[in-house]
Design a protein around this nucleic acid. Structure first.
Lengths: 156, 156
DNA sequence: AACTACCATTGAGATTGTCAATAATTGAAG
DNA sequence: CTTCAATTATTGACAATCTCAATGGTAGTT
């Protein structure tokens, strides 16, 4: 009566394995820029959003503890890649925005990552990648506990 | 000229986020059994495979450093969930096999995990989940550097 | 017997995850 | 205006994880 489905078919296991493989290769791709995956994520989010990207929102979107964001922003700020500005409307919020250098570094980083992705995703046709993206988004944000990507019909 | 594709559409980011969300909920589901995700994986692999599952193979399949397997097996063994038997053919290899208790605990764990998965995957129809599994397998094992799941046509 | 290669193991050091406590700020209630 | 609860960023402690180098035991080869 034991289901005993092989773990190699388990979605959680596969997700973890795939995520790990990709993250490792991204990590190598970013090493020359002295960036790690997390730093890159924060930097990139700081590049987007002309609106105010607070640390709290960063934590929510990245599904990280707010205290981890502090350290990440600290390092990026000390390297002159992002600004940390208190929100005039609510001075509890610190708004994270990329500097000019930050934008350039982020762009460089993204190109390196794209190159790294080739080794992983170029086997599979774009339509399937779109499908994958869709599914992952559903799973990653199904709880709605965090970042906004849920109902994606807006103005864009 | 900046591509500046939003990070929320990035496959690496989505993989990490989705993996994290699922892992967290699995972790909670296993807490009552005093198991974490990694321990469960080792235990489950020890349940499969009447053949010899060595620690080296565990490390390869789970994409972990061999030294981490040691600690995981140590704990499972101390709790009487797995055996660590030197391979008679090559005594360098330690074959990891689940005890009777181990099998029962693994089964219990799997049921709890399945229940936890309902919250994540029941939205999406089975065919799409199969497609997802397929894609993840390709990505997770594309390098062939590790565990065998590549050419899946065997005897089963 | 000497040598090379492999496996499990140990240990150190960095990175990350988790959680509680605190100061500053805000908004609302009295 | 004062008090109170809630929220944000921050700090610090501790556990868990990753990464890497070194070691002892074993196997196969020459």
């Amino acid at each position: 009566m034991s289901t005993q489905r092989p773990l190699a078919d388990d979605l959680g296991f596969l997700l973890s394995r795939a995520s790990g493989v990709v993250a490792r290769s991204v990590s190598e791709a970013l090493a020359p820029l002295d960036l790690r995956v997390r730093s890159y994520s924060v930097l990139t989010f700081a590049c987007e959003e002309t609106a105010g990207m607070t640390q709290r929102r960063l934590a929510a979107i990245m599904a990280l503890d707010p205290s981890q964001i502090v350290a990440l922003v600290d390092e990026l700020q000390s390297r002159g890649l992002v600004h940390r500005t208190p929100d005039p409307a609510d001075r509890r919020n610190k708004i994270i925005s990329a500097t000019d250098v930050g934008h350039r570094v982020a762009q460089d980083a993204q190109q390196r990552i794209d190159r790294a992705y080739n080794g992983h995703f170029d086997h599979v046709p774009p339509e399937r990648l779109d499908e994958l993206r869709l599914l992952l988004r559903e799973i990653a944000f199904s709880d709605t506990s965090s970042g906004e990507p849920q109902a994606q019909a807006r103005d864009a």
